[in-house]
Design a binder for these strands. Structure first.
Lengths: 348, 348
DNA sequence: ATTGAAATCCAAAGCGCTTTGATCAAACTG
DNA sequence: CAGTTTGATCAAAGCGCTTTGGATTTCAAT
């Protein structure tokens, strides 16, 4: 059933039917009611393609997911982020078109999608410092929202991000205040902007508490369980192990905990652990009570907000919402006072 | 730059330019070369919407992700599956439109997407027995591939699935052959078809080895780390604990391992554990050597194959590929002979 | 009654592409 | 050399919608 058939059926012109359905005022309420009734009786749905062609809007948003082609990785964070965004899109009548592309082809892909007029806007995932996608999209002149920030890129664009720096500074200070002097950072890949900010927060806290940061206590890797395990294990087996671990992802934290258990150490006693927690669907931080002490911020919610920011920008292209989300800090059982370590005893 | 402008620029008709670009034979190779050169010099990209309208094909595939609205869960399995599928789509020039919808609205959503002619086909995720979506899509008459199977639904449709039954039967038999008599099943939600098949395999193995299955050793829940932990902990704290755990997901297995560690038990000695392993990006089963003994099958690859099956069906709607993937069985350090338990001693 | 204005409705153009059916020249037939 | 085929190109219709610019009717106000 298309517009023509529907309007013939009703004995009205296509114009009137179209207007009735789209809520224009030039049509009497009686007619509108009649049209709407007939439309959903016959299950009429306007053809998206035709509508898009006529209006010049495709009513779709592009998400370009980076994937390390070499090791075929998709961060589970994206799943939750997209689920959040999707909610907003549905409500606004937008579709979500997703492409998963290797890092190198992202520009091409975005340009293609935009050039073909397949989408009205983009969400940019996992930005790196001076991310070239930002310049590209500005040049193409299409609305977009960055999830995260890109140090060094032209800052005049919309973004949604959490306050990584403050969160990691706070967590580190919390550990320092518990007496920990050797704190390790198990970070994500520091080619990403978020990881650099987290490291910066970690370092700021050291400065604030008069601690000497130790480069050998900082690792940076893809945020997998296995990497968390390996990094933590190596650290804890050293002759001068850290007494606390700060993890950039709950997935790393799970791996780190495996290492702690495996070495017969007790979490919260022998070793303290704080994790960043994106509140991922399948990796909730414990049940009612948090298991790990954590910096918490729902990425699902960030997705929702990013989508809303984009809708706003599409409605009025001059707008460029910039949303900085603060994180929660929740205390779980994974942290405690620093144990009396050899080197502390010597000091005394 | 659109077709009209490009053809004016070249002094050719739109027809010729269109044909040159789409590889039709009615155009001389000299002209084609000239057209192609001009097209990419000017970065011409045909407007998807116009093309879709003219051809009647939208060159897009719909994925409808179910999400438990109540607890906002997106299974990380989807991320990898979609990444795999996406690869195939890109190559074939298809886009992927994703909607994340609560269980109850899935039918509506599919009907909507199809009715609006926004997609040319669907992938159906997470089927349940007699899943109504299958009947719906058959009625709408649009190509689709089910990831998994739906017992009880009209079987005449395309699907890609792993041999859940055989895999779980084999794993259970493996444990039985190691002397385990009390084997627990930590299954996914048994409202899903895959979980029912896994349970069936588990039971078949019991029958084959002359073991009495114990209902109280079988649990079924959303496959989260926390649920794995809780279920394993409860089981292992019983007076008659199982000596082996069979987990339906590596995420459950991680939780179960936490419980094992927490109780001071040794994996592979006091308790054996086998997991199903979807080879998820961020939850690889160990490094070079598998950590858990596991039934392994890459869901990324399943995504790729499902997408290919769909492309095939779209090209020729009479085709209905049905692909059953066998799983690998890999031996890791998490399994070993059953410990001598009280009740076994009594027997002797 | 007359006049606008407001309320309804419509015909037709246009969005950017594909595709049908036709044209015309050049290259083969016998 | 007339007649046919082939090769290369084009004009125009159409895909299903929106939207512009009237046309017609209604009705309160003059």
């Amino acid at each position: 059933m298309n517009l023509k058939e529907l309007s013939n059926h009703l004995g009205l012109s296509q114009t009137t039917v179209s207007r009735a359905l789209n809520g224009y005022p030039e049509v009497s309420e009686t007619t509108r009611a009649r049209v709407v009734a007939a439309a959903d009786r016959h299950g009429y749905r306007p053809n998206t393609r035709a509508k898009a062609l006529a209006t010049g809007r495709s009513m779709a948003i592009g998400h370009i997911l980076p994937v390390s082609t070499r090791n075929e990785m998709v961060n589970p964070v994206f799943a939750d982020f997209i689920a959040g965004a999707s909610e907003t899109y549905s409500r606004a009548g937008f579709d979500l078109v997703l492409s998963v592309v290797g890092d190198q082809d992202q520009g091409t892909h975005a340009r293609d999608l935009a050039g073909r007029r397949a989408v009205d806007g983009f969400i940019v995932h996992a930005p790196r410092p001076e991310d070239p996608r930002i310049a590209l999209l500005k040049e193409i002149c299409i609305p977009f929202v960055v999830h995260g920030r890109a140090t060094g890129a032209d800052p005049d664009h919309a973004w949604v991000d959490i306050n990584n720096l403050r969160a990691f500074r706070r967590a580190t200070e919390f550990l320092a205040d518990l007496g920990h002097r050797r704190i390790a950072l198990l970070n994500g890949l520091e080619t990403y902007d978020f990881a650099q900010r987290r490291r910066a927060g970690f370092l700021e806290a050291h400065a604030a508490r008069g601690l000497e940061p130790d480069e050998t206590l900082m690792s940076s890797s893809e945020m997998t369980e296995q990497n968390g395990y390996t990094a933590a294990r190596e650290l804890l087996e050293r002759s001068d192990p850290p007494t606390a671990l700060l993890c950039s992802s709950i997935i790393i934290a799970f791996g780190a905990r495996r290492a702690v258990d495996g070495l017969g150490l007790r979490l919260g006693k022998d070793v303290s652990l704080i994790s960043h927690d994106d509140v991922l669907s399948y990796f909730r931080n414990g049940g009612e009570e948090p298991y790990f002490t954590a910096i918490r911020s729902s990425v699902w919610d960030a997705g929702r907000q990013a989508a809303e920011a984009l809708m706003e920008q599409i409605a009025d292209p001059r707008k460029r919402p910039q949303i900085l989300l603060e994180t929660d800090f929740v205390i779980g059982g994974s942290t405690g006072p620093a144990p009396d370590m050899e080197h502390r005893l010597k000091e005394a």
